[in-house]
C-alpha cells in the first residue's frame, strides 16, 4: 500500500469517519475537527502506523497531506 493510501486509513481512524478521503492537497481547512490537539493524536497515530518518530519542528508547520506523505517517505527511505 502506498503512503497516501495508508495515511488515509490513519485519518479515517483518528477522525472516526469511514468516508473521509484525503489527497495531497488536503489541509486542515477542509477536514472538520483538525485542530492543534487533533494534530498531535494524528501524528502519534502516524508514528505507530509507520513505525517512525517525528522530531520536534518537523510536523508543526506541515502545509498539507502531500507534505506529510513526503516527510514520511523521506524518513522511511
Amino acid at each position: 500500500m502506498d503512503t497516501l493510501a495508508k495515511l488515509n486509513e490513519v485519518f479515517r481512524d483518528v477522525f472516526e469517519d469511514e468516508d473521509l478521503t484525503v489527497g495531497r492537497e488536503t489541509t486542515a481547512k477542509t477536514v472538520a475537527g483538525w485542530d492543534s490537539v487533533m494534530h498531535i493524536t494524528l501524528m502519534m497515530s502516524i508514528e505507530r502506523a509507520f513505525k517512525l518518530r517525528f522530531n520536534s519542528g518537523e510536523v508543526a508547520n506541515l502545509k498539507n497531506v502531500g507534505a506529510l506523505a513526503d516527510l514520511i517517505d523521506r524518513k522511511k527511505a
Binding site: 492543534s36 498531535i40 508543526a60
Partner: peptide, 13 residues
Amino acid sequence: FAIFSHDVLMSQA
C-alpha cells in the same frame, strides 16, 4: 507560536 504550541502538545503526549 505554532511550532512552540505544537512542541508543548507533543511533550504533553
